[in-house]
Write a protein that binds this DNA or RNA. Sequence first.
DNA 1: CCGCGCCGTTAACAGGATCTTTTCCACTTC
DNA 2: GAAGTGGAAAAGATCCTGTTAACGGCGCGG
Lengths: 117, 117
Amino acid sequence: MANLADVAQTTNATKRVRTIGNVEIRPAEFQVLIEERRVGLTVREFELFQLLAERLDAVVQRPEIYSLMWGGEMPRRDRSVDVLIRRVRAKLEQVAPEWRYIHTHFGIGYRFSPEPA
Amino acid sequence: MANLADVAQTTNATKRVRTIGNVEIRPAEFQVLIEERRVGLTVREFELFQLLAERLDAVVQRPEIYSLMWGGEMPRRDRSVDVLIRRVRAKLEQVAPEWRYIHTHFGIGYRFSPEPA
DNA sequence: CCGCGCCGTTAACAGGATCTTTTCCACTTC
DNA sequence: GAAGTGGAAAAGATCCTGTTAACGGCGCGG
């Protein structure tokens, strides 16, 4: 169960405003801003984005993403993760067409790294 | 917990007349004026308005609004916040139809930012 | 004391946004 | 070329919000 230390740590790790390049993440508001512009992610989309951003430059495996966001094992041929990735990418591109943030690693998963297009 | 210094600071922060764009807030009088025109909020409506205005451009989560205004946890499916928001919006619109002040963030909460309609 | 109006809260409904699932197809890998 | 994987779009179910109305408490004036 959560104790005070955990809560404090969680607060520090996930509730603090974080800036990665031109991306600002405000967990307390479920908001992502790129160069002052609001991306407008939904709650679920934000959770996915934050999950990847917390592991900057690391490839997060698809089943792990699933289990973190939906809980339990990922059913075979489940497309939930894809669909969400797609939506996040679309909104990111609307706000910052010159940048690529989420990269596909075929057969493995996804990686968050801001890179020029 | 709050101490005297905090209270003094709070007083300075919340009791001082504040102007945001064409909006003037007079906490000592529970009054909001838009371009010299009185909005005519009730006490409760004013509290909500002030709460959001103090956090200009930040999304304030619905449960947080509830706990700040009513205290304690927000019951599931409680609509108190909505209805109050609705009333505030209605009065704001009567006075300034060309402006939008309170923006909805679906599944999250509300944000105060004066914007042209 | 009584009626009236104002205010805050609660309830209910309709519409809209979001989430999930499904489908099709292009692409990668072997 | 075959099997597997991911991109894209759409449909259905679910959840959330906007809106209106109704209820009860309170204070004021008659």
